[in-house]
Computed example of a mutant assay.
Amino acid sequence: MTTSSSRQAILDRIRAATLSDSNSRADVPRNYIHHGALDAAGCLHLMTERLREYGADVVESSFADLPAVIVRQLQSNGRRGFVAPPSLPAEWLVAAVVWEIDSNLSNEEIEHCDGVVTAASAGVADSGTIVLHHGASEGRRVITLLPDFHLCILRASQIVETLPEYFARFPQPPRLATYISGPSATADIEMTRIKGVHGPRFLSVIIVHDEI
Rank of each mutant, 00 (worst) to 15 (best):
His35Ser: 14
Ala40Trp: 07
Cys43Leu: 05
Leu44Pro: 10
Leu46Asp: 06
Glu49His: 15
Leu51Ser: 02
Leu51Tyr: 07
Arg52Trp: 10
Tyr54Arg: 05
Gly55Tyr: 13
Ala56Ser: 12
Val59Glu: 08
Ser61Lys: 02
Ser61Ala: 08
Phe63Gln: 12
Phe63Ser: 13
Ala64His: 13
Val69Arg: 03
Val69Met: 08
Ile70Lys: 02
Ile70Pro: 01
Arg72Ile: 15
Asn77Met: 12
Asn77Glu: 11
Asn77Arg: 13
Gly78Ser: 07
Gly78Thr: 06
Arg79Trp: 14
Arg80Asn: 10
Arg80Gly: 06
Phe82Cys: 04
Phe82Thr: 00
Val83Trp: 04
Ala84Asp: 00
Pro85Gln: 06
Leu88Met: 03
Ala90Ile: 11
Trp92Lys: 00
Trp92Ser: 01
Val94Ser: 00
Ala95Asn: 11
Val98Cys: 10
Glu100Gly: 08
Ile101Lys: 12
Asp102Ser: 06
Ser103Trp: 14
Asn107Phe: 15
Asn107Pro: 14
Glu108Phe: 12
Glu111Lys: 15
Glu111Cys: 13
Glu111Gly: 09
Asp114Cys: 00
Val117His: 03
Val117Tyr: 01
Ala119Asp: 04
Ala120Thr: 15
Ala120Cys: 10
Ala122Tyr: 04
Ala122Gly: 11
Ala122Val: 06
Gly123Asp: 01
Ala125Met: 02
Ala125Ser: 08
Gly128Lys: 00
Thr129Lys: 03
Ile130Met: 06
Leu132Arg: 00
Ala136Ile: 05
Glu138Trp: 01
Gly139Phe: 05
Gly139Ser: 01
Gly139His: 01
Arg140Ser: 02
Val142His: 13
Ile143Pro: 03
Thr144Trp: 10
Leu145Lys: 09
Pro147His: 01
Asp148Gly: 04
Asp148His: 15
Phe149His: 12
Phe149Val: 10
Phe149Tyr: 15
His150Ile: 03
His150Ala: 04
Leu151Asp: 02
Cys152Ala: 08
Ile153Lys: 04
Ser157Ile: 08
Gln158Phe: 06
Ile159Trp: 01
Val160Glu: 01
Glu161Asp: 11
Thr162Asn: 04
Thr162Asp: 05
Leu163Tyr: 09
Tyr166Leu: 11
Ala168Asp: 08
